[in-house]
Amino acid sequence: MNRLAPYLLLPAVMLAVMPFMSHSSWLALTVAGLAMGMMLFLMASGLTLVFGLMDVLNFAHGGFITLGAYLAVSVLGPLTGWVSSESWALNLLALLAAVLAAAIASGVAGLAFEAILIRRVYGSHLQQILITVGGLIVAGELIVALWGPQPLPLAKPAILRGSFLLFGATIETYRMAAVAVGLVVYAGMHALLNRTRIGLVVRAGVENREMVEALGYRVRRLFVGVFVAGSALAGIGGAMWAEYQELITPSIGGEMTILVFIVVIIGGLGSVSGCFTGAMLVGLAANYVGFLAPKLALGSNIALMVAILLWRPRGLFPVGGK
């Protein structure tokens, strides 16, 4: 029972709030919460794997989120024609271009960041925190220097605007799309981790890096790959979040970093399943509490984190001996 508890938490939370609202509100809020959770999962998964594999705590992770968001703006700006076109094919093409550009830019930035900063501070958490915070400051300033400090608007593709009715609930189309994309990425990641040799090595490496190396696997190289993939995912998450918000400011990464940290702490640093559950919990809590008690909304995530840490000091899905 105790081992299953973390898995049951999510449905339990969903059911627990049901009596306090109408079915249609519940459905709308649940979709909104899951959508937010999916985007948070994209942003957080890289961070948790990077920690699990190499014990590296990257405070600059939010920089990749910001970069992804700004890339989306820059790509969608010139594509306004496609974005607002009647043709759904052009719509989706524009979206795909934005997401791809965000993934590539964040991935390349991640590669550089790993080579320049992270590689030199393996093993020292104090130095890692300081260096990555320094890197975050510089990255944030560079983004402002390139894109300017003012908030930038961007438009959702025409087919993803608006909403539709589902069992009497008004569901925003974009949220449904975000849930779909998130599920696809999660399924893909799950398959990669559980069905391939690389995934096997990553899972083993998260548990005991030395032994994996003693079995002949070059974990450092693998780590660079995971770091780049994690940065790219953060970029995609940032791009999707930007389109969801339709307005971005340079502080977007910083704001999301806080939520991402809460997600990985709740889930247990290093665990992908934990990250997924944590992301959904944070997304749902934000929406349910925002509806039931708007005044408490801003504290809901912190309260959630504290409650879970008191219950499980190492998060829902603790990994290895760390």
């Binding site: 899972r203 548990e207 190396e213 003693a214 002949g216 070059r218 290895g320």
Partner: peptide
């Protein structure tokens, strides 16, 4: 040599702590 290169020469190592991956 780094550890993976040493292992790849054909050396199998069973550490004192056994190095079993518990979650696998």
């Amino acid at each position: 040599l780094p550890t993976p290169e040493i292992a790849r020469l054909g050396i199998a190592y069973v550490p004192e702590t056994m190095g079993i991956f518990a979650a696998l």
